[in-house]
Nucleic acid binder design. Structure first.
Length: 136
DNA sequence: CGTCTGACTTAGT
DNA sequence: TACTAAGCCAGAC
């Protein structure tokens, strides 16, 4: 599954614009705002925090998320609606049960109905409910 | 200290 | 439609 970049050191070096702690805080802030019964994707979160190409970092952030974020982390799925992070709960079925308990429907055993429940953090930023994302 | 992997996504072939 | 390449960046070895 590894892409195995041939040269290995070819990545661009122009980063360091976003401290990782700040990145994590932003990710967690977005995840906390996901309403019950809704789901969003890693890529959408990445875009919302200003790191559109760092979807993997979002996954990494959730892998080591604090307890409060863990409570709503099951509302984050991949762009296909699949419960890729389901094993973090021991088994994807547990994650699915959590989502179903909130009213989320599934199109497959481990695939949510994104068309019905997808929540876009970019739109929610404007709602009065947003509290974790200060203006830059 | 170098290399690979990963709760991902997009674009190209 | 399926598979490959590449981009991101922090850990584990």
């Amino acid at each position: 599954m590894q892409r195995r970049r041939k040269t290995g050191t070819e990545r661009r070096d122009g980063r360091a614009a976003t401290p990782r702690t700040d990145f994590l805080e932003r990710v967690y802030a977005v995840v906390r705002q996901i309403p019950p019964g809704r789901v969003t994707t890693y890529g959408r979160i990445a875009r919302a925090v200003g790191a559109a190409r760092s979807a993997r970092m979002v996954g990494w952030a959730l892998h080591r998320c604090p307890p409060d974020v863990s409570d709503v982390a099951h509302r984050v799925v991949n762009r296909n609606g699949e419960l890729t992070g389901g094993w973090a709960w021991g088994h994807p079925a547990i994650m699915r049960a959590l989502l179903e308990d909130e009213g989320v429907t599934f199109v497959d055993e481990f695939q949510v109905d994104l068309a019905r429940h997808l929540w876009d953090p970019m739109e929610a930023e404007d709602t009065p409910d947003s509290r974790g994302i200060p203006e830059p």
